[in-house]
Amino acid sequence: MSDQEAKPSTEDLGDKKEGEYIKLKVIGQDSSEIHFKVKMTTHLKKLKESYCQRQGVPMNSLRFLFEGQRIADNHTPKELGMEEEDVIEVYQEQTGGHSTV
C-alpha cells in the first residue's frame, strides 16, 4: 500500500510543476525593474502585453530577450528553461537604418 501512496504523490508533484508559478524580473533599458509572477505554462505574450500596457507603449515597439534570445509570443517559461528570479531584458525595437557599404 505504501507504494501506491507514494506513486500518486509523485504524480501530484509532476502536476504541481506544470502549474507552478515563478517570479520573473523584467528590466528596461533605463534599468527599471518590474516583477511578474507567471505560470510555467503561460505564453509569455501575456507578460509582454502587461509590461507594455504599464509602460504605455505599443508591444511592437519593444523586444524582449532572455539569455540573449528573442522571446516569441508563444514561448512559455518552461520551454525556455526559466527559473525563479530570472531576468528578461527589454530593448527599444530598432527599425529602419541603412547599409554603410
Rank of each mutant, 00 (worst) to 15 (best):
Ile88Tyr: 03
Lys23Ile: 12
Val38Gln: 02
Ile27Arg: 04
Thr42Gly: 06
Met82Val: 02
Ser31Lys: 02
Leu24Lys: 06
Val26Phe: 05
Ile71Val: 14
Glu5His: 07
Glu20Tyr: 14
Glu89Gly: 12
Glu18Phe: 10
Arg63Gln: 05
Met82Leu: 05
Gln69Lys: 11
Glu85Lys: 15
His75Leu: 06
Gly19Trp: 08
His43Gly: 10
Pro8Phe: 12
Gln53Asn: 07
Asp86Gln: 02
Gly96Tyr: 00
Phe66Asn: 05
Thr10Tyr: 14
Arg54Ile: 07
Val38Asn: 01
Ala72Met: 15
Phe66Val: 02
Lys78Gln: 08
Glu11Val: 11
Thr41Cys: 03
Pro8Gln: 15
Lys37Tyr: 00
Gln4Asp: 04
Leu65Arg: 02
Arg70Asn: 12
Leu24Glu: 00
Val26Met: 02
Gln94Glu: 07
Lys46His: 12
Ser32Leu: 05
Phe64Thr: 03
Leu80Gln: 01
Thr95Gly: 09
Asp30Asn: 13
Gln92Thr: 12
Arg63Gly: 04
Glu93Trp: 14
Lys48Met: 06
Gly68Trp: 04
Thr76Phe: 00
Tyr91Ile: 00
Gly56Ser: 11
Lys7Asn: 09
Val38Ala: 07
Gly96Val: 00
Ser61Phe: 08
Glu84Lys: 12
Lys39Ile: 02
Glu83Gly: 13
Phe66Lys: 01
Thr95Arg: 14
Gly96Asp: 03
Gln4Met: 09
Gly68Asn: 06
Ser9Tyr: 10
Ala6Lys: 08
Asp73Lys: 01
Ala72Trp: 00
Met40Phe: 05
His35Phe: 11
Met82Pro: 03
Leu13Ser: 13
Lys39Tyr: 07
Asp86Asn: 13
Ile34Trp: 00
Ser9Ile: 08
Phe36Pro: 04
Ile22Phe: 05
Ser61Pro: 02
Ser32His: 05
Asp12Glu: 09
Ala72Asn: 15
Asn60Val: 06
Val57Arg: 15
Ser2Asp: 14
Gln92Met: 14
His35Pro: 05
Phe36Leu: 03
Gln55Pro: 07
Glu84Pro: 14
Glu49Ser: 14
Leu80Trp: 03
Thr41Ala: 10
Glu33Leu: 06
Leu80His: 03
Lys45Ile: 13
Met40Ala: 06
Gln69Asp: 12
Gln94Ala: 13
Ala72Phe: 09
Asp12Val: 12
